[in-house]
Amino acid sequence: MSHSNETIFTNPSTFILLGIPGLEAAHVWISIPFSIIYAIALFGNFAILFIVKTEPSLHEPMFYFLCMLAVTDLVLSTTTLPKMLSIFWFSSREIDFSACLTQLYFISCYIVMESGVFVAMAFDRYVAICDPLRHSIFLTKHKVAKIGLVAALRGSILVMPYPILARQRPYCRTNIIPHTYCEHMAVVKLACTDISISSYYGLFVLLSVHGLDVIFIAISYAQILRAIFSLPTKDARLKTFGTCSSHFCAILAFYIPMIFTSLIHRFGKNVPLHFHILTANIYLLVPPMLNPIIYGVRTKQIRGRLLWLFTHKRS
């Protein structure tokens, strides 16, 4: 679908997602690792949810937060990958205007929610290691549910202006989005009016949410490391650090690609477009795959339960 540059249409009926410009010939090949990543993410996160639900010994705050993380990962990957694969396999590039804004909202919302879950998990590890006697008092099931609700509401409310502002803008340049999904700024940049409000608000969300979350997590882990190094024996230090190592690895897998992608988006003007889009896809798809692997390998209770399930089925 094409539109004249002189025509202003406040609500275009559809947008066109190009996929990865410059790598169209390799779309089918790129879809193979993406499909594998998605399959692993689905299996791993559903496995986490099933194991925690069916194992009463795992009904603890850390594993409840892990279930929240698994749900956000499932929504993030499912919001983006099916449409992405339809572009790669069937050249189905059209996406309805409302569907595009819905995808934009869910991606941005659940990224904020996932960041909030990581903060909650850092707080859980801080209390468990630095004040273990009060852990059960601070983090009851009721309080864990409240923390999860706050994380969900924070993401839902803060991101709500994204699609509202995008819907109100007139679009007169083009309806072609050089991306595999409806990324917030990629959509807003198609408007033919001043987009400074959307741009500044997006920067505000980035700094006030992810920036503050990273600071809070860093402070928590500084206190955790100080408590660990004050333990009398090496074995005690290693055992205590092992209880939070999986969470630390998951944090790195989430925030490092996010920071890298944000830097490229804002300062990498000479970076090829296809590289920018690939990194944006990796940022959304790889953490949902890695998180269940990290927790499955590093968390003794989940690893043991998973091995028991496989050996029990075979016997």
Rank of each mutant, 00 (worst) to 15 (best):
Y171D: 05
Y171N: 00
Y171F: 05
Y171L: 05
C172P: 15
C172K: 06
C172Q: 05
T174F: 08
I176M: 15
P178Q: 09
H179D: 06
T180K: 04
T180E: 08
Y181G: 02
C182Y: 14
C182Q: 10
E183P: 01
H184A: 11
H184V: 11
M185F: 07
A186M: 09
A186T: 08
A186R: 08
V187I: 12
V187Y: 14
V188A: 07
K189P: 00
K189R: 03
K189V: 03
K189S: 04
L190I: 01
L190E: 02
L190G: 02
A191R: 15
C192V: 13
C192P: 15
D194T: 04
D194K: 04
I195T: 07
I195D: 05
S198V: 10
S199P: 00
Y201H: 13
Y201N: 08
G202F: 12
L203S: 10
L203K: 04
L203W: 02
V205N: 07
V205Q: 11
L206T: 11
L206C: 11
L207F: 04
S208K: 12
S208F: 03
V209D: 14
V209K: 12
G211H: 02
G211Q: 04
L212T: 01
L212N: 05
D213C: 14
D213Q: 05
D213H: 08
V214N: 06
V214D: 06
I215W: 04
F216G: 10
F216I: 11
F216M: 14
I217D: 00
A218P: 13
A218Q: 07
I219H: 07
I219L: 09
I219G: 02
S220N: 09
S220D: 09
Y221L: 01
Y221G: 02
Y221F: 13
A222Q: 04
A222K: 02
A222I: 12
Q223I: 12
Q223C: 12
I224W: 14
L225H: 04
A227Q: 10
I228P: 08
S230D: 09
L231E: 09
L231G: 13
L231I: 06
P232Q: 05
P232W: 00
T233W: 14
T233S: 12
T233E: 03
A236E: 04
R237G: 00
R237E: 03
L238I: 05
K239H: 08
K239A: 11
T240K: 12
T240R: 13
F241G: 02
G242A: 15
